[in-house]
Design a protein around this nucleic acid. Structure first.
Length: 277
DNA sequence: CATGCGTCCTGCTTGC
DNA sequence: TGCAAGCAGGACGCAT
């Protein structure tokens, strides 16, 4: 469930405890959490002795930038995808890992980064060159760093449903089901509308609304539906500001009609049949 | 190429 | 009260 605002909150929360530290080792409590790597030992050797230069977000990925080190004489990155239920926090290295902890990164100050993931959808990987990773190279623009008009132009001739395109990480990066539904409501667009049937002005309005909603969600520390927590263990606050997500059957906050629930692009989609159309 | 759909995974919720 | 089916959803593999 962590989408752009949640991963941004996590990156900001982890940075003070990680940046400047040196990585000593890693431990995998679940073998499948490690993606695109021949073995845990290859990963461990690849990170050992490196200093953490930065902790940042790209799309829904948490990216840890690692400096070169003796024996590892090139920059590298650890990329973590939290998917639905992933959580990250820093604790004493000797702390007993709670249930569903899949991975630990041990630091030179006696602490460790813990990665917990109940549903095992999440993963982490060690990447020397991010752009040689096809998924990363194909990511679309960051919505908060782009002109809404330029984003709108990216889907001008597409016939797919607008909801499917918002969720497509190559169209725009970092949007998931929550912020897709919320921005479609704000722009007055049905989730099952075909992109080519939406006027350029309304498509621009959609991305302007997306920017505003993402910024407000980051300011609130993200949205907690069930599993998401900040690195400090706190729930987000933006779930209290939802207009439609998870509110099927309840009155539309704008017109009072009951909100409809459908499946679009295989995802539950909530919208107002009066305001979006 | 573009689009759409089934699959993975596990714990909570719903329904009989 | 108990148990099974349903549901959540990001990315990917495959079908059309």
């Amino acid at each position: 469930m962590p989408e752009l605002p949640e991963v941004e909150t996590i990156a900001r929360g982890l940075a003070p405890g990680l940046v400047g530290r040196t990585v000593l080792d890693a431990r995998f409590l679940c073998p499948t959490v490690l993606a695109d790597c021949p073995s845990p030992d290859v990963f461990r050797a690849g990170i050992a002795g490196r200093r953490i230069d930065a902790v940042r977000r790209r799309a829904k990925l948490l990216v840890i930038d690692l400096a070169p080190a003796p024996g590892n004489d090139y920059p590298a990155h650890v990329a973590v995808h939290l998917k639905m239920t992933g959580r990250l926090w820093i604790a004493q290295a000797a702390a007993e890992p709670p249930k569903h902890v899949r991975f630990q990164l041990f630091l030179d100050d006696g602490h460790a980064l813990f990665f917990q993931d109940q549903r095992r959808f999440g993963n982490c990987r060690l990447v020397a060159d991010l752009m040689s990773w096809p998924f990363f190279a194909a990511l679309g623009p960051e919505p908060l760093e782009s002109d809404p008009k330029a984003l709108a132009a990216r889907l001008g001739k597409k016939t797919a449903r607008i909801k499917a395109l918002l969720l497509d990480q190559t169209v725009v990066a970092g949007v998931g089901n929550i912020y897709a539904d919320e921005s479609l409501f704000a722009a007055g667009i049905r989730p099952d509308a075909r992109a080519c049937d939406i006027s350029p002005a309304r498509r621009k309005k959609l991305f302007a609304a997306l920017q505003k909603i993402l910024a407000r969600a980051i300011a609130a520390g993200g949205s907690t539906i069930r599993d998401y927590r900040t690195p400090e263990g706190l729930e987000g606050g933006f779930q209290n500001d939802f207009s439609v997500y998870g509110r099927g059957g309840q009155p539309c906050p704008r017109c009072g009609l009951p909100l409809s629930v459908t499946k679009v692009a295989g995802r539950t989609s909530t919208f107002c049949p009066g305001c979006q159309g």
